[in-house]
């Protein structure tokens, strides 16, 4: 029987790669997206081509009723939920002194409260199943700090704390909760950086290259697998050695 995964923010970037990697490993995958239905449908088509079942669900992860509806859709469709990957995230970068309250709130709502709401919603079916895994996508900047990202860093550090707490609360029900902290991952965003900045960036990374979204997807697949059934409450850094 195939396991069932829900990936938030699964229409592009790291979430997209995670959804596809899980499908390759035999999961049925529910793809949550905020706005880009076309991109979500593209991922769904690829998952179907891999022979797995999928649904796409539009939902704002910072809205409790939408999150509850999303998890209900997954359970109605597949009868269970084995894995939640909290990946949905946004950035609103600005220097602390210039950051607007609204920019701070938006990032905290999506990147931190969203993790809380999604975790809370899947806990019920997972408790009944007496099994489940939750993997939160944090960031190495949640460990190191990063100028211009007070909101994002606060949320990502918060996710690490929430991961540890959820792991402790839910361990007795065989629900395992871990985080992954990606370093610099090649995305549309890093493509736009100029060469000089990129070279500076690479000097910080012992492996001297940017990570790929699939590097993160493979780490998710490992933590989700039965090979990681004695790991909970941890933050796995996938950053080419950037932070030690």
């Amino acid at each position: 029987m195939s396991k069932v995964a829900l990936v938030t923010g699964g229409s592009r970037g790291i979430g997209r790669e995670v959804a596809l990697e899980l499908a390759r490993r035999g999961y049925h995958v529910a793809i949550n997206y905020a706005g880009n239905e076309v991109k979500a449908q593209e991922v769904a088509s690829e998952i179907k081509a891999l022979g797995q079942q999928t649904i796409t669900i539009q939902a704002n992860v910072s809205d409790e009723s939408e999150v509850k509806g999303m998890v209900k859709s997954v359970v109605d469709q597949f009868g269970r939920i084995d894995l939640l990957v909290n990946n949905a995230g946004i950035t609103r970068d600005n220097l602390l002194m210039r950051m607007k309250e609204e920019e701070f709130d938006q990032v905290i709502n999506t990147n931190l409260k969203g993790v809380f709401l999604c975790t809370k919603a899947v806990t019920r079916p997972m408790m009944k199943q007496r099994s489940g895994k939750i993997i939160n996508i944090s960031s190495v900047v949640g460990i190191t700090g990063n100028p211009g990202q007070a909101n994002y860093v606060a949320a990502k550090a918060g996710v690490i704390g929430m991961t540890k707490t959820a792991a402790k609360e839910l361990a007795s029900r065989n629900i395992l909760v871990n985080a992954i902290a990606p370093g610099f991952i090649a995305t549309d965003m890093t493509d736009e950086l100029n060469d000089e900045l990129k070279a500076d960036l690479l000097k910080l990374i012992p492996l001297e290259r940017l990570g790929k979204a699939e590097d993160i997807a493979k780490a998710v697949a490992f933590l989700a697998s039965d090979d990681a059934n004695y790991i909970t409450g941890q933050t796995l850094q996938v950053d080419g050695g950037m932070v030690m």
């Binding site: 019920r124 408790m127 009944k128 609360e169 007795s172 029900r173």
Partner: peptide, 9 residues
């Protein structure tokens, strides 16, 4: 506490 949450469920 968790048992009680589960019972209510």
């Amino acid at each position: 506490s968790l048992d009680v949450v589960e019972l209510v469920m």
